[in-house]
Nucleic acid binder design. Structure first.
Lengths: 329, 329
DNA sequence: TTGTAAGCGTTATCAC
DNA sequence: GTGATAACGCTTACAA
């Protein structure tokens, strides 16, 4: 684990080029320098295979050109795509991505946050589940999907519209007894607005809407019980279900099938996220698609903005709908 | 993007504790120091919220405590899980993970490799597709799934056994006309052995085995044509197909269904990877499971080994089989 | 044992 | 425009 002994330094380049150390530095910082000198330095650098050591540079400039991406996990396809998009958006601007996976552990989340205060990264993009995370408002932080306050920019999909969109679709496709299902932590987040939007849109159209929120600790079983309880002679009390995520939709579909119900003939299902099979194939279900790439770009944009004095506190990006076999269309 | 102005430094701690700078350093490096001094330093550090700046430290020690993980992408579930496992294995040992996504671009791959020679990371774990990647043998590098030579440790699943396993299963389940299907880049890799193992096991049992290798550039269409060509009055010339990946299996299943064939009644399918729906649910198909977590741990182990003088050149980890609905069992 | 000072690779401030 | 030189935060001989 020793470093390469012979990694060339600026000093080596200076000697090789026969110029002063400072001159070499200037060349690599695009500071005007005699055309002749510049050429000599560039040639020497190429000859030696020299590359600036950005950590040494960071020591002077207080920039490491690396940002931390804090995610609960990276196997959930939504997070995976997000990670990929953030990573490439950062790479495009010359920043490294330090990936921190918290496994939904508040302590790990806080630990990552602390890292930045040690000058280890220039900023953080975080999707976290700790409600009382201590984020210094003076420190570059962009939150995804969780609103911390007016001083911490938060970017998310337009979850409320997404919920409305799902309701409109379901109603348009003939559903009259809609149900909203969600599962997840009790930590409030932007995605809670999916249900709000759904219920609001139903109400607005004079349709009663049922809802079941689970916090996930008892697993998925309560859904099975709930659905079984609402069966009457082989018929479900609902004809359209909006599930808060695609993963949940797939699971619910399985339960419905077990109960002898057909999707979409008996019950239509709409999910949320827009996850594709193996990330590139078809959708798992009819779904409200989150603009993950734009989410990532916007976060990076906000984080790296030169002028951080006037940042928005919440940016919502538009979602779209796509059929995926669990609706009648 | 300015750093926190007030990030405390060792100097601050020294002043606060009323000791010399060197003493503070010793405390943080577990070098013996008077118990009394140690306490004072620790208290001062806590009071100030001091944390060592590991990049400044790295400047002296030539270690950054970060390693680069080079992956073609991170949305493919196999890579996603690998990323997650590598990340946590590294975190456990106090190392950061710098995620580099190459999008299968040889140039990006070479660029990442170059990074380490600039002292930006202490080592690389790479899953790459560039056949002639320049990896300095003196530099800590562990390759996943691609063998570079005796001096670059390579970690992979036991692909050959996996192929054999698939053949045994298929034959055991009554198949007599097996087919092997693969798609992917022409860059040779360990995973090529899947087909070798499969064909070898078939041959050993005296069963003829067909195979079709695609390089992916023409998309999946050739598979459709191939299968359609081997249909005779609604009956396929094959009764068992081993696909090189789960993703391919799912695709092939779709094609077979379109052709009016039933899975697993008419044709049995076995995939490779052991990918689960949404990473935690059931398998997409009957499959040979790669021990991804062990792959990750082993790679990290090899990379961080103190004594790098006697490393294995290839480590194969055992795979297992699990039914997933595309076989008759 | 504790303090001092040199130096890691860079940038930035000056005289020249 | 160019080239010494002092920092940046830390480790590590070495001197006290």
């Amino acid at each position: 684990m020793k470093r390469r002994e012979n990694a060339p330094t600026m000093k080596d380049v200076a000697r090789e080029a026969g110029v002063a150390l400072g001159t070499v530095s200037k060349v690599f910082n695009d500071i005007p320098v005699g055309e002749d000198y510049r050429r000599r330095v560039e040639e020497a650098a190429k000859r030696l295979g020299y590359q600036v050591n950005s950590y040494a540079r960071g020591l002077k400039t207080n920039r490491t050109y690396s940002v931390a991406l804090i995610l609960p996990d990276v196997v959930n396809p939504f997070f995976a795509i997000l990670a990929q998009e953030v990573c490439s958006a950062l790479a495009q601007r010359g920043y490294r991505t330090i990936l921190s996976i918290t496994a939904y552990d508040p302590e790990a989340e806080q630990r990552c946050i602390r890292m930045v205060q040690q000058n280890k990264v220039d900023g953080i993009i975080g999707l976290t589940y700790t409600p009382d995370l201590e984020v210094d408002p003076r420190l570059p932080y962009v939150s995804i999907d969780r609103y911390f306050g007016p001083n911490v920019p938060c970017v998310s999909s337009d979850n409320f519209s997404g919920g409305q969109l799902a309701a409109e679709k379901l109603l348009e496709l003939g559903c009259r007894r809609p149900l909203f299902l969600r599962i997840g932590s009790k930590v409030p987040g932007e995605s809670d607005k999916r249900g709000d939007g759904f219920e609001s849109a139903c109400r607005q159209r004079g349709i009663a809407c049922a809802a079941l929120h689970l916090n996930g600790e008892e697993g998925m079983e309560p859904f099975r019980d709930f659905l079984a309880d609402h069966m009457d002679r082989g018929r479900l009390a609902f004809d359209g279900i909006f599930c808060a995520t695609d993963a949940l939709t797939v699971h619910i579909r399985g339960i419905l099938t077990e109960l002898g119900l057909r999707v979409p003939e008996d019950v239509q299902l709409i999910g949320f996220d827009g996850i594709r099979r193996f990330a590139v194939g078809g959708f798992h279900c009819s779904t409200v698609i989150q603009p993950i790439a734009r989410l990532a770009e916007t976060s990076v944009d906000l984080l790296l903005r030169e002028d951080r004095s006037n940042l928005p506190s919440l940016v919502c990006l538009p979602v779209t709908y796509a059929p995926g076999g669990t609706t009648r269309e």
